[in-house]
Design a protein around this nucleic acid. Structure first.
Lengths: 317, 317
DNA sequence: AAGATGGGTGAGTAAATGCCCGAGAGCAAG
DNA sequence: CTTGCTCTCGGGCATTTACTCACCCATCTT
């Protein structure tokens, strides 16, 4: 109890220091003397504010080249919404940049006064985007999870997105209290009969917008790393021509859902249709190129948030 | 035309550099080599991006608004120190929040190793702030009272602040062994001749910082409640245009000391000058808005500790 | 009670950043 | 072609920031 108050006080100080540093443009020395602490402490508070994501930076300028790439992607793949962020050549992160851009796009939707249903998938990229969301008050909207949020070991899944999102934006939320993969098609159908799941499934069909990560497949794919899929199953999938997945739905290099196979056992909500819903994929990174390309080719998504390098690659194919 | 494209290209580069710096977190050296320019050029682009407001930083924490308000108050009323604490809409207390903030500010001053002279006024708000002070050892400082600490009935005044403060922080203290109001200007002058009082008056002129409450006037004002001022005198004051008081000094709505009237009989130390002393007022609460505004307008104080609601009101006038 | 543990602090220092200034390119007028 | 002007660039340097290290103190463990 006392501990929490203490920690909150420290975060308060961190926020103060961060504000003085980034917004007011003071030096850490000035902050230190203003707050009556040593310069080192001020520095620590500033970096704490950054680490705790109290400080959010956004670039508010259309970079011509990114805009052009976005426009061409839109034309080429018949998309309604494309965001291309600059690439950072030196970084191998798969989230830096598109997380911020994704958060900005999500925020745009959430700012609408009329109630919407916003669907989210899961994955590291999406989680990073959610972490960039500012605190908001959106009681008018409903957000729902397209994928189960129970991990392979029964725990809440690592990159469970919907709870952190609901927490940040204060909207009603509808998780999928299921694993991502179940043991058989029969089990899935049975589980989907549950009334809780039924209402979430229904909501999925009503979604106005869906944000999904695009996952690559392969022996090093997150799905394997996190234990959702055995290496043998992954190998089998690859043999069947799988090129990527969205919310657990496996598709081949032309973006067609694989018949049978793992997909029989995916407990996720069916991807909303492009016709009624804005389905926006987030992905960047070389390893994901085939998956992104397939998803676009198969028209599984009609919106994309990616980076320059990926955009260039997609246009060059 | 060519010029505009050129300038736009430069902004593009600035945006790119700013993005790499703030979002991707690279150093200017890395940006420079990534973009094939010198580090200095990269630095220029980054600072251009900031100057052109391409980079938007925001603080995602409840106190962000308070800091923003504080900054605006500083600008608007030419103050050196402003602290805005969150308002508690449910509470009508006139001290909750600013007492803690006031104590924190006092503590900052007392922590200085070099000796200072700290002046205090009186009042419920200041008393509440003092009560929040931790025990300290400050033999190097001197604290003095700006106002008399003898009540209208000859007893020690209720909200006498200096003794409890001296008790808490173990500093040498210089009270004003006088009533707040005496019977005439002559009597005041006579009392001020006393050597004890003389030394306190002298100390007042040397004060490095003064903490004062800002009092509202009116039939229900504390000054009446506590019997310092009769209702008839208060009514007369109001007729003369009095809007508030600090340490007993009455001022009108423009923050000008009233000539004659009660002020002739105020035995307090003259308020230290803004030029040499940080004069920090503490006040919040709807009833005090006119008084605070007047004190700011008349430049009687150059520091303020208040709450969000009052800050907003002051900025809206 | 003694010792481990974890978070926080200040000193010191290396790295990164901001800024001034002289050099050189480009350009218009003479 | 020269002169004078502006503009931008990069070198050098002072300031500011990040990081490491030793240390302190409260809490927890054995």
């Amino acid at each position: 109890m006392a501990k929490r108050t203490e920690a909150a006080g420290r975060l308060d100080d961190a926020a103060r220091a961060g504000w003085l540093y980034y917004v007011a443009g003071r030096t850490q020395d000035e902050i230190a003397s203003a707050m009556g602490i040593s310069r080192q402490s001020a520095q620590r508070l500033v970096s704490l504010a950054v680490a705790e994501r109290l400080i959010k930076v956004r670039l508010d300028h259309p970079i011509a080249e990114c805009l052009e790439l976005a426009e061409r992607l839109k034309q080429r793949f018949d998309l309604v919404q494309v965001d291309v962020v600059p690439s950072d050549p030196g970084s191998s992160s798969t989230t830096v940049g598109i997380a911020e851009a994704g958060a900005a796009e999500i925020e745009r939707w959430l700012k609408k006064p009329e109630p919407i249903v916003l669907a989210v998938g899961t994955g590291r990229t999406l989680k990073a985007a959610i972490d960039q969301l500012p605190a908001m008050e959106c009681p008018q909207h409903r957000i729902m999870s397209l994928t189960g949020n129970i991990g392979p070991d029964g725990s809440a899944a690592y990159y469970n997105v919907i709870f952190s999102m609901a927490d940040a934006v204060k909207a009603r939320h509808f998780p999928m209290p299921l694993p991502v993969l179940v043991s058989s098609a029969q089990e899935r159908d049975l589980l989907h009969q549950q009334s809780l799941v039924q209402s979430t499934l229904k909501l999925g069909r009503e979604a106005d917008v869906a944000f999904v990560g695009i996952g690559e497949l392969g022996p090093d794919a997150p799905l394997c790393e996190d234990g959702f899929l055995g290496r043998d199953e992954m190998a089998k999938l690859m043999d069947e021509g799988a090129a990527g997945e969205i919310c657990g739905w496996m598709f081949d290099r032309d973006g067609r859902l694989l018949k049978g196979s793992i997909n029989e056992r995916v407990a996720s909500v069916p991807l909303p249709s492009r016709d009624s819903t804005a389905v926006i994929g987030l992905a960047k990174g070389k390893r994901k190129y085939p998956a992104i390309h397939a998803a676009l080719k198969g028209r599984m998504i009609n919106g994309l948030i990616t980076d320059e390098a990926a955009a260039k690659h997609l246009l060059s194919t």
